[in-house]
């Protein structure tokens, strides 16, 4: 579904990604692990066209998407749950969800309303706070709203950037259960995480990114067992 081939990206003179090659197959959950400044978020931004790769190519379902404007990539069925949620704080919960469905202009209103209800079913707290401004929600609720907003686009590929960041352990479990549930309904997911244990727990495959290079990739359970991965990312000695 998604394939990055030898992608190189720079911020000014600084090389952030060096020849990144990765693939996400239809129906998978793939996780991209790495520490701070390893290039995880840049990889996401490159997929979405927010950062232009200086070399290499990005393909979505066989068609090249690098060089397309972000909104054109999004219209092809890619949604992002960004790092630090970035919900629209001055819009209500309902309005945020409507923004999520922006790429579906022309969809019949009852269909959109049904999708809003589905999101409220997934995250009942959002339903209770439908008229509240996004900025007044708690961190966990904002994460739910960011996920709900991304789902409103009915994405084929869902990108998630550090969904566990800043959440309590109980909430992290809930968020990852939801990610798994979304995947079972047919959405392909690429998740970027520092919390490797939880992410590998639900993923099919994983890639490890270090200083802008892919240094390992394997099935998730194999990565969980690999010694050097455990030492580097799972905090074990």
């Amino acid at each position: 579904m998604l394939r990055l081939t030898d992608v190189v990206a720079h911020y000014g003179p600084l090389r952030v990604l060096s020849s990144v090659t990765l693939e996400v197959r239809s129906g998978e959950i793939v996780c991209l692990l790495g520490g701070n400044a390893s290039g995880k978020s840049t990889t996401m931004k490159t997929i979405l066209g927010l950062v232009r790769p200086s070399a290499g190519q990005v393909e979505l379902e066989g068609a090249r998407i690098d060089g397309l404007p972000t909104e054109a990539i999004v219209r092809r069925g890619v949604s992002l749950v960004p790092e630090a949620r970035r919900i629209f704080g001055r819009m209500t919960v309902w309005e945020n969800l409507q923004m999520g469905a922006l790429t579906r202009r022309g969809a019949p209103p009852p269909e959109l309303a049904a999708d809003v209800e589905r999101v409220y079913g997934l995250f009942p707290r959002l339903g209770e706070r439908a008229g509240q401004l996004g900025g007044t929600l708690s961190g966990g609720e904002q994460q739910m709203l960011a996920m709900g907003r991304a789902l409103m686009a009915r994405p084929r590929l869902l990108l998630m950037d550090e969904p566990s960041m800043g959440l309590s352990p109980a909430l992290v479990d809930q968020v990852f259960d939801t990610i798994q549930a979304i995947n079972r309904q047919g959405t392909t997911i690429l998740v970027v995480e520092q919390n490797a244990t939880v992410a590998l727990g639900i993923a099919h495959r994983g890639y490890v990114l270090q200083n802008g290079r892919i240094v390992a990739h394997d099935a998730a359970d194999a990565l969980l067992r690999a010694d050097h991965i455990r030492r580097a990312y799972l905090g074990e000695d």
Partner: peptide, 14 residues
Amino acid sequence: RAVAEDREMAAVVG
């Protein structure tokens, strides 16, 4: 309003 609040995120939702 979305562009006024967060231009990059507005582009990301399309």
